Simulated scan of single mutants.
Amino acid sequence: MNFALFYRISLVIIALSGLLVPDPTLTAKGPHPKTPIYPRVAVCCAAKLPNRFGTSNALPKLVNDLSKAPSVKHHAGMVWISPGTYRMGGDNAQASADEFPKHKVSVKGFYIDVTEVTNAQFKQFVKATGYVTTAEQKPDWNILKKQLPPGTPKPAADVLVAASLVFVPAKGPVDINNYAQWWAWSKGADWKHPHGPKSNILGKDNFPVVHVSYFDALAYCKWAGKRLPTEAEWEWAARGGLKDNVYPWGNESVNIGKAKANIWEGDFPYKNVQKDKFYYAAPVKSFAPNAYGLYDMAGNVWEWCSDFYDNNYYASVNKPEGISNPQGPAKSHDPDEPYAIKHTVRGGSFLCNDSYCSGYRVARRMKTSEDSGMEHLGFRCVSDK
């Protein structure tokens, strides 16, 4: 769930209709300085919601008891990624500023999940622990308001409800900077109801779990005796041993040849020709793996990483000798959302398209707030040897 983000979008929509003066923190600095801009719902510039559990390292007591973790071989369903050195960062003209400079990085070896965490796996976790996800909880306004511009009015009680953001396709061409046109704040949307309260996950055990916040992902990882990958680990694994290639499979465009990933094919966000056979998320392992045997490192759902997001981080670690096992910046920094604390997400989703975000590139960095959970956001785990 990302109530802070949705609420800010609502304020901008009201402002556009002349009912409110636009929030100055949402004003573009381009040729039209008085034009409000929309926060990026699609895991691009999400505002931060508070950690309901206190601090980033504090998780519910129920996940401290690892005796309830799965009674299977610890590294089952994972593959070993050997240590190595590579150049981390953008590889083509689609790369954004925060993907540069390309810099030398060395990582230790680690195990990583072959697939994104599935509904079946998350269901086992919830059954064993009684865990309640962020999207299933009512937001606390006293904490929430600290993440919004000073003076932001409190919303009506019927808005402060357990909910999450679901994708609703536009009816025709829209300004893709207006993210409110394809996202809807849906009461009752959560991991068990991915498209809203009337949906369910029956028969979808092998689909990636979605609507999970950063804290939900951490809780699952702790229960399973694992952790979230760092950005450097994720990109090293996604590259599959290929040097300076754009995608997990090489350099051939995602739009050429056979379907390589679950993405948006056609005119975003209203027409998807479904060459890949899927409109929403696909079952894991629906497409060919990369050379390391990892599935869906491009498309399907975005994946949480452990790093804070800082748009200038790569410049700060760009040294001739390189950097070993980077853990990310000490704190979050996103000039687009000065009130937000964000973590990086990687890999793209079924909503990614070259006209929009090209999130399926291995170097593509996105960012979202810790409490965000959306219909195209999941995770996979890693583990040390």
Rank of each mutant, 00 (worst) to 15 (best):
A217M: 12
E303F: 04
V126D: 10
Y214R: 10
P33D: 09
Y247T: 01
W236L: 02
S96R: 15
R380F: 02
V132D: 02
N325R: 00
W234I: 00
C45Y: 07
G188D: 12
E370M: 14
H376A: 10
P50C: 12
S213A: 13
N290E: 09
I81E: 00
P229M: 02
V63L: 01
T344G: 09
A315S: 10
A298V: 09
P60E: 09
D336F: 05
N318P: 13
A217C: 11
R364T: 03
G359R: 00
C221D: 01
V284P: 00
V107C: 03
L351A: 00
G347H: 01
S253H: 06
T35K: 15
V273T: 14
L59M: 06
V159P: 07
D384I: 07
R364P: 00
C221R: 05
L19V: 09
C357I: 15
D158K: 08
A281P: 00
L242A: 09
S82T: 15
P289G: 03
R8I: 15
Q137N: 14
Y339T: 04
W223V: 12
S349N: 08
S56I: 15
C357L: 15
S67N: 14
R361G: 01
V126F: 10
N57P: 04
M88P: 12
V105K: 01
A184R: 04
V72P: 04
I341Y: 07
N300R: 09
H75I: 15
A157Y: 06
P39Y: 10
D216M: 10
T368R: 08
K146P: 02
K342G: 04
P229T: 03
F207V: 14
N200D: 04
T118C: 07
R364I: 01
Y111N: 13
A162N: 11
Y292D: 03
K171H: 06
L59V: 06
A237L: 03
A224T: 05
A76L: 11
Q137T: 12
K102F: 07
A28K: 13
